[in-house]
Structure formats: structure tokens, C-alpha cells
């Protein structure tokens, strides 16, 4: 009986102490973590919408969408965060759209688990810069092994066709969802 009481006492006190320590560390860390998250989002938004000064969360069911405004609080476009399946796992892409939904301003890859050195080339500027000012009507197309000839085409990465294709599909999908929503309104 004495042994049982001892076991309970030791476990309880250890639990209480560790809970207390964790609570205080978490209290200290949470503001930093929130700040990091906010900074990361802001950085990404202003990266894909260079003209933006302010942004506002746009209420959307299954995607993150932001409306962005310039210095005079005038709407300049949208920022969409969409994700889909790549070669080995999900790819999360953020991209900016012009106000009239005709062109992409820029894109960035937020998360990916593609093959190092191949699929990961989608995070490099060589690939991402192709999307700058890209025409998205009727939709983005990709070509392989030759330079793009039309305004709405990008060149897929050699050896990483699937990752390139997935990125294009994720963007097209996000654009379509946004267009549909805006038409409904």
C-alpha cells in the first residue's frame, strides 16, 4: 500500500512539474511562433504581389485567398495559396493574380517534398520566373524539351516533368476555383 502511494506521488509530481515547465516555455514561445508565421505569410504575399501594400483575408472555404491593395487602398489583385499532389507528396504553391484575372504576377513554392536535385528545381528562380507576367487565359500550358512559343506556356524541367506538371495543375486549379467564386458573387 505504501508502495502504491509512493508511485502515485512520484508520477503526479513529475507530471505537474513537467506540465508547469512546458506551460511557461509555451507561453514564452507562442508569440514568436505567431510572429514567424505572420512574417512568413506577409513575405510570401508581398513577394508574389510586388505592388501590394496592404492585404486582407478573403473568406474562402478550401483555399487561402487574400485580396491585396496598393498604397491608395485600391484593389490590385489576389493572392492564392493552393496545394495538390506532386511526385512524392503535396506541393503548396502561393501565387499572385492581376485584378482582371488575366495574368500571374509571380509564384513561390511554400512546401514540397520532391526528389532532391530534380523535383526540387521547381523552387529555383529559373523555373519560378517563367510564371512572371504569364498569361493565364484560357489556362497555363506546359511544353517539354523546347522553348515555350505562346504567352501562356512554360517549359517543364528536364527530368522533373511530373513535378512541373503538378505545379502548373495546382495553379490552374486555384485560378479556376477563384474564378468560379468571383462569378457567383
Amino acid at each position: 500500500m505504501k508502495q502504491v502511494i509512493k508511485i502515485i506521488a512520484v508520477l503526479t509530481s513529475i507530471g505537474i512539474i513537467s506540465g508547469g515547465v512546458l506551460a511557461s516555455v509555451s507561453n514564452w514561445a507562442n508569440p514568436f511562433i505567431e510572429k514567424n508565421k505572420k512574417e512568413a505569410t506577409e513575405k510570401a504575399i508581398f513577394l508574389v504581389q510586388p505592388e501590394a501594400k496592404y492585404y486582407e483575408r478573403f473568406d474562402f472555404s478550401d483555399m487561402e485567398v487574400y485580396k491585396v491593395y496598393d498604397y491608395d487602398k485600391e484593389l490590385v489583385g489576389y493572392v492564392v495559396v493552393n496545394q495538390g499532389n506532386g511526385f512524392q507528396g503535396p506541393i503548396r504553391v502561393i501565387f499572385g493574380l492581376s485584378k482582371d484575372l488575366q495574368r500571374i504576377t509571380a509564384i513561390d513554392v511554400l512546401e514540397q517534398v520532391e526528389t532532391p536535385g530534380l523535383g526540387t528545381l521547381i523552387t529555383e528562380d529559373d523555373f519560378k520566373n517563367q510564371f512572371k507576367n504569364l498569361l493565364i487565359v484560357p489556362m497555363i500550358e506546359w511544353v517539354k524539351g523546347k522553348p515555350p512559343s505562346k504567352d501562356n506556356e512554360i517549359k517543364a524541367i528536364t527530368g522533373a516533368t511530373i513535378s512541373s506538371k503538378a505545379t502548373v495543375q495546382i495553379i490552374n486549379d486555384g485560378i479556376n476555383k477563384l474564378k468560379k467564386r468571383l462569378n457567383d458573387e
Binding site: 513529475i14 507530471g15 513537467s18 515547465v21 516555455v25 514564452w28 514561445a29 514568436f32 511562433i33
Partner: peptide
């Protein structure tokens, strides 16, 4: 007991790194 102690420190490391 060991697991509780270890996981406490791991959580501390995790939070500090994230912050």
C-alpha cells in the same frame, strides 16, 4: 518517468526552435 522527462525536454527544444 523517463519518458515524461525526455518528452518535456524534447517539447522545449521543439518550441524554442520554432520560435
Amino acid at each position: 518517468t523517463f519518458i515524461v522527462i525526455i518528452s518535456t525536454f524534447v517539447t522545449i527544444v521543439d518550441l524554442v526552435m520554432k520560435a
